[in-house]
Design a binder for these strands. Structure first.
Length: 918
RNA sequence: GCCUUGGUGGUGGAAUUGGUAGACACGCGGGACUUAAAAUCCCGUGAGCAGUGAUGCUUGUGCGGGUUCAAGUCCCGCCCGAGGUACCA
C-alpha cells in the first residue's frame, strides 16, 4: 500500500475533531500547561514561518500526554489591532468583519497541520465575553493603590480610610508625585479634589504625562511600541507631548519584576533584556539649595562621591521647574531654546548629538562645598528619569564634559592622576582628591562615606531608581476594548462591575470625530444610564493579551476570570513558546498583570510563565534572475558577469534547487511571455539570498502548499529538521524531499512486498532491540531539551537500520509508532489503528528504554593510555574486560607507558581504545 | 559604547559537554533498474599529497597565544556577524 498522506491526514483530522480527542478537563492526573503566544490574525494568512513554534509546542504537548500528564494546550486570537482598523478606515468595512474572515482563514490553515489544540477553549480578545474580564481587571486596578511597605497592591477604599485618619503620615506609597497632607486637610477637601488626589495613587490612573504621540496614527504609544523615535507599527515619527492619559503603575512592581526573574527558566539573553528595560540603578538623591526658590531641589546620581566636582546643574527642557528658575533677563533665550527643542522630534534629537543648552539665570549651592553653581537647561537631560535635573560633574561624566567644554564651564578633577584635558575620566576607580573629607578614599569607599554623610546631615538620601516607566494605557482608536469608565465633574469613575461587559458601540466612520476626539466620539448615546459621558479612548493591544493564559483555564466562566478550582489545578504556564520581540512588551505586562491579580489572592501563582522558549524567525530565501539591461533576455547566474544585468526577484515557487522552471517563468507574468534565456549546461541557474519573508520579495512559502504536496507530517518534521528551534534560519523547500522520503521508508517498514500490513509477532533480536531502545532514549532526552532537529535525525537513523535489518517485528514497530506520534501524528495514528487499537495513539504510553540493550561504548577498566594511539587490533562491538586487556597488552608502547601507573578507566569508542585514564 | 548571543564542508546543521570532528539531510558525481523519464535502490563526497589498489600521510571547527596525554568544546587577547539597549545622570 502506498503512503497516501492526503487520505490519512484528512481521515484522522476528522476523527480527532469529531471525537474531541484533544478536549481536556480537570482530572486526577498531574497537569501540564503548554502555551503558544496567540497570533494576531493578519490578512496575509500564515506563511511557513508562523507554525514553527506551534509545531514545537505541539510535539511537546503530545509527548507530555504520552507521559501521563493532563495537558492543556489551547489556542486563540489576539484580535484587536491596527491593521483591521486601518483597513476599515480605507474601505468602511467594519473591523469585526475583517477580523472574522482572517480568523476563519487562520483556523483552516492551522487545522491542516494537525495540532492538538483544545478548540473548545478558544478565546478572542475582541469577544465581549472575553473583554469583560479585561475591563474587570482594569476596574480592579483603578480601585487599587500600591503599598511600598507591604510590596503589594491593596484596595483604594483602605487608603481613603487611612487618609481621613492620619493623612499621608508614615505612608510609603507608589505615586506619580510625592504629596503631603494631614487628615484635617484631606477631610476638608471636596469630592473632586479628593478624587484628583486618589488618581495620584491608583494603579490604573489618569494623569498628565509625557507621552509618545504619533500624529500619523493619531494615537499615543507605549515605550515598547516605539523604537528610535519611530512607531513599530508603520514606522511613523513619534513626538513627545504632555497629554492626559490612562497609565498603569507598572513601575511600582519594578523591584519584584526584577527579583522574580531569578526563579524563571528563561533564556539568559531574554532575562537580561528585561533587566535592562527595568534598569535598576542604585545611588543617592541630593538636595541642592536654590536661592530664588528659597528651597532645595533633589537630583539623582549614582556618583555621589563626585559631589565636590559639581560645577553646574542641568534641567530637562520639559521640567516643571523651568519657569520658576528662569530669571527675567534670561526669559527670551530660554523661550527660544524651548521652542527649538519642542519642534524637534525625538528622532532628530537622537540623530543630532551636538551640544545645546541655555542658562536659566539661577544658581544653586553645592551642599558640601558651599560653592555657587549655575543652573542650565539642556535636552540631554530627560524629564522622565530621576528628578528631571542633574548635578553635572564634567571631570567624570562624558556628557557633562562635552557640555562644560562647549559652554566654557570649569572642570574639577577629583581622582588622583586622572587626565581630563581632552576627555572625562568615567571609570569608577582611583583615589579621591579635591574632595574635602573624602580625600584619600577609593571611589567605592567614597560613595559609601558620602551617602552616610548626606543622610546624617539631612541633605540627601540613598535612592534606587528604575528606568521602567508606567505603561501608557489609552489609545485614540476604535478597534479596542472600551474603558469601563465614566466622568462626573470631569473626574473618572468606574462603572458597576455587574454592568460588564461594556460593549464597543457602533460608529459610522472609523476616523477621529470632527471635534478632534477619538473615534468613539462619534458613537451615539455613549453614556451611562444616568447620562454621564463614557470614556472615549480605548485600551491598547497588550490589554487583551496580558491575562489570556488565565482565561484558557476556565474560558466559559461567566462569574469570574478563572474559578479558584480551575486556577488551583492549572496554576500557571509550564511552557510558553513565542518570539523574542515581546521581551519588553507583552512579557513585562503579563508578569505585571499576573502579580497584580496575585496580590489580591485572585490567582495562586506569582509568575505566569515558568519556562519560556523563544523560537527563531524563519527568513525567506529569495531567488533572482538576471535580465540583460534593455532587453528581455535572462542570463544564468554563472555567466552574468559577462553582461550588464538587472537583478529581478523570481517567485521561489517556480524555482527548484536554484534551477528556474523556464515555462512557468514565462507564464508567471505577461512581460516574460517571450523572454529569452542564456543557459549554462542547458539550465537556468538562479542567484539566491536570505531576506525577510515577504510578498514583495516573492519568497513567501505557504504551508497549505507544502501540506498539499507533501503532507502535514512532512511539514512538521521538516520544520523541526531545519535547525535548532531557538535559532533564526532561512526556509528552503529544497531539503524537504529528504524528510518526505524518510516517512515513505518508515511506512514501507510496516508493509510487505505485496503492500499488505505485515507484522511479525516473533521476538526481536538483540540488534533490533538496541536500535529501538537507543532511539527511545534519544527521542526522550531530545524532546526534553527541545532539540527537535536531532530527534528527526535519530528517527532517520533508526529507520535506516531497521530497513537494513529487514525488521518487521511488532515488538519494535509498535513502540516506534508511539514515539513518532508527537512529530508525525497522522501517520502514527494510522499505523496504530492498523495494529488493531480502537483508541487514539495519544492515549498510548511513551515507552521506557532499557539500558541493558544499550551498553557498549564507555567502559570502565583499569589500564593505560597514549595520546593519539590507534590500536592495531580493534574491539568487537560487544566486548569483555579480558578482551580490552588483550588489546592493550598487544601494544608495546602502551605497556611501557603504563609501567608504574595505576590505570583507572579505559575509554572505548566504536571498538577503538581512545584513552586510558590513570 | 554597554549587555546577550553566535562563528564547524558547496548548503542546513551533528558532536554523549574535554575523547574517532563533519552524524543526519540537501546538493553534487558515479552506478543499477527503465525504450525513456519520474520514482526507487546502491556507491562516493572537508581540503591537500602519495599509491594501480586496499590504503597511508599531512592539514583542518573565525584569528593569535595558553592549559591538557587529548581542545570545536576550558583559559587569555583580538576579528566578524546577529539580537537587545542607548544622552538613564
Amino acid at each position: 500500500m502506498e503512503y497516501n498522506f492526503r487520505e490519512i491526514e484528512q481521515k484522522w483530522q476528522k476523527y480527532w475533531a469529531e471525537n474531541k480527542i484533544y478536549k481536556v478537563e480537570i482530572n486526577d492526573k498531574p497537569k501540564f500547561y503548554v502555551l503558544d503566544m496567540f497570533p494576531y490574525p493578519s490578512g496575509a494568512g500564515l506563511h511557513v514561518g508562523h507554525p514553527l513554534g506551534y509545531i514545537a509546542s505541539d510535539i511537546f504537548s503530545r509527548y507530555k500526554r504520552l507521559c501521563g500528564f493532563n495537558v492543556l494546550h489551547p489556542m486563540g486570537y489576539d484580535a484587536y489591532g491596527l491593521p483591521a482598523e486601518q483597513y476599515a478606515i480605507q474601505t468602511g468595512q467594519h473591523p469585526s468583519i475583517t477580523t472574522e474572515t482572517n480568523i476563519k482563514r487562520y483556523r483552516r490553515q492551522l487545522d491542516r497541520i494537525g495540532f492538538c489544540f483544545d478548540w473548545d477553549r478558544e478565546v478572542r480578545t475582541c469577544d465581549p465575553e472575553y473583554y469583560k474580564w479585561t475591563q474587570w481587571a482594569f476596574i480592579k486596578m483603578f480601585d487599587s493603590y500600591y503599598c511600598n511597605q507591604a510590596q503589594q497592591a491593596r484596595p483604594i477604599s483602605e487608603l481613603i480610610e487611612v487618609f481621613s485618619v492620619q493623612g499621608t503620615r508614615n505612608l510609603d506609597l507608589a505615586c506619580s508625585k510625592q504629596l503631603q497632607f494631614t487628615a484635617e486637610e484631606w477631610n476638608l477637601k471636596n469630592e473632586k479634589e479628593q478624587q484628583e488626589i486618589l488618581l495620584n495613587y491608583r494603579i490604573a490612573y489618569l494623569a498628565d504625562t509625557m507621552v509618545n504621540w504619533c500624529p500619523k496614527l493619531g494615537t499615543v504609544l507605549a515605550n515598547d511600541e516605539v523604537s528610535e523615535g519611530l512607531s513599530i507599527r508603520g514606522g511613523y515619527p513619534v513626538e513627545q507631548k504632555v497629554m492626559r492619559q490612562w497609565s498603569l503603575r507598572v513601575s511600582a512592581y519594578a523591584q519584584r519584576l526584577l527579583d522574580d526573574l531569578e526563579s524563571l527558566d528563561w533564556s539568559e539573553s531574554l532575562k537580561e533584556t528585561q533587566r535592562n528595560w527595568i534598569g535598576r540603578s542604585e545611588g543617592a538623591e541630593i538636595n541642592f539649595y536654590i536661592e530664588n526658590l528659597n528651597a532645595g531641589l533633589a537630583v539623582f546620581t549614582t556618583r555621589a562621591d563626585t559631589v565636590f566636582g559639581v560645577t553646574f546643574m542641568v534641567l530637562a527642557p520639559e521640567s516643571e521647574y523651568v519657569d520658576k528658575l528662569t530669571t527675567g533677563k534670561q526669559k527670551q533665550d530660554v523661550a527660544k531654546y524651548l521652542e527649538r527643542t519642542k519642534r524637534r522630534t525625538e528622532r532628530e534629537r537622537i540623530a543630532d548629538k551636538s551640544v545645546t543648552g541655555v542658562f536659566t539665570g539661577s544658581y544653586a549651592t553645592n551642599p558640601v562645598s558651599g560653592h555657587k553653581i549655575p543652573i542650565w537647561i539642556s535636552d540631554y537631560v530627560l524629564a522622565g528619569y530621576g528628578t528631571g535635573m542633574i548635578m553635572a560633574v564634567p571631570a567624570h561624566d562624558s556628557r557633562d564634559y562635552a557640555f562644560a567644554k562647549h559652554f566654557n564651564l570649569p572642570v574639577i578633577p577629583l581622582i588622583e592622576g586622572c587626565d581630563v584635558s581632552s576627555e572625562s575620566f568615567d571609570a569608577k576607580d582611583g583615589i579621591m582628591i579635591n574632595s574635602g573629607f573624602l580625600n584619600g578614599l577609593t571611589v567605592p569607599q567614597a560613595i559609601e562615606a558620602i551617602k552616610k554623610y548626606l543622610e546624617e546631615n539631612r541633605i540627601g538620601k540613598r535612592k534606587v531608581n528604575y528606568r521602567l516607566r508606567d505603561a501608557i494605557f489609552s489609545r485614540q482608536r476604535y478597534w479596542g476594548e472600551p474603558f469601563p469608565i465614566y466622568y462626573k465633574q470631569g473626574m473618572p469613575y468606574a462603572i458597576d462591575e455587574k454592568k460588564l461587559p461594556l460593549e464597543l458601540p457602533e460608529i459610522d466612520k472609523f476616523l477621529p470625530a470632527e471635534t478632534g476626539e477619538p473615534p468613539l466620539g462619534r458613537a451615539k448615546n455613549w453614556q451611562t444610564a444616568e447620562g454621564y459621558p463614557l470614556e472615549l479612548n480605548t485600551m491598547p493591544g497588550f490589554a487583551g493579551s496580558s491575562a489570556y493564559y488565565l482565561r484558557y483555564m476556565d474560558p466559559h466562566n461567566d462569574n469570574s476570570l478563572v474559578s479558584a478550582e480551575a486556577n488551583k489545578y492549572w496554576k500557571n504556564v509550564d511552557l510558553y513558546v513565542g518570539g523574542t520581540e515581546h521581551a519588553t512588551g507583552h512579557l513585562i505586562y503579563s508578569r505585571f498583570w499576573n502579580k497584580f491579580l496575585f496580590d489580591y489572592g485572585l490567582i495562586i501563582e506569582n509568575e505566569p510563565f515558568k519556562k519560556l522558549i523563544n523560537q527563531g524567525m524563519i527568513q525567506g530565501r529569495s531567488n533572482f534572475a538576471y535580465r540583460v539591461k534593455g532587453t528581455n533576455r535572462f542570463v544564468s547566474l554563472g555567466l552574468k558577469s559577462e553582461y550588464d544585468t538587472t537583478e529581478i526577484h523570481v517567485d521561489v515557487n517556480i524555482v527548484k534547487n536554484d534551477i528556474l522552471d523556464i515555462d512557468k517563468f514565462k507564464q508567471w507574468r505577461p512581460e516574460f511571455n517571450d523572454a529569452e534565456f542564456i543557459l549554462e549546461n542547458g539550465k537556468y541557474i538562479c542567484g539566491h539570498a536570505v531576506e525577510k519573508m515577504s510578498k514583495s520579495m516573492y519568497n513567501v512559502v505557504n504551508p497549505d502548499e507544502i501540506v498539499e504536496n507533501y503532507g502535514a507530517d512532512t511539514l512538521r518534521m521538516y520544520e523541526m529538521f531545519l535547525g535548532p528551534i531557538e535559532q533564526s534560519k532561512p526556509w528552503d523547500t529544497n531539503g524537504i524531499d529528504g524528510v518526505h522520503r524518510f516517512l515513505r521508508r518508515l511506512w514501507s517498514l510496516y508493509f510487505d512486498m505485496d503492500g499488505n500490513f505485515n507484522i511479525s509477532t516473533k521476538k526481536a533480536n538483540q540488534q533490533e532491540l538496541k536500535c529501538l531502545h537507543k532511539t527511545i532514549k534519544k527521542i526522550q532526552t531530545d524532546i526534553e531539551n527541545f532539540s527537535f532537529n536531532t530527534s528527526v535525525s535519530a528517527f532517520m537513523i533508526c529507520v535506516n537500520e531497521l530497513m537494513s535489518l529487514k525488521c518487521n517485528k511488532c515488538e519494535i514497530l509498535e513502540p516506534l509508532a508511539v514515539i513518532l506520534s508527537p512529530f508525525a501524528p497522522h501517520i502514527a495514528e494510522e499505523l496504530w489503528h492498523l495494529f488493531g487499537h480502537a483508541t487514539s495513539i495519544c492515549d498510548a504510553v511513551f515507552p521506557e528504554y532499557n539500558e541493558e540493550f544499550l551498553t557498549e561504548s564507555a567502559f570502565e577498566y583499569p589500564v593505560s593510555f597514549n595520546g593519539k594511539m590507534r590500536f592495531k587490533k580493534e574491539l568487537p562491538l560487544a566486548f569483555s574486560a579480558k578482551q580490552v586487556e588483550e588489546v592493550i597488552l598487544a601494544d608495546a608502547a602502551t605497556q611501557k607507558w603504563l609501567e608504574n601507573k595505576t590505570p583507572k578507566k579505559v575509554i572505548v569508542v566504536v571498538g577503538k581504545i581512545v584513552n586510558i585514564v590513570v
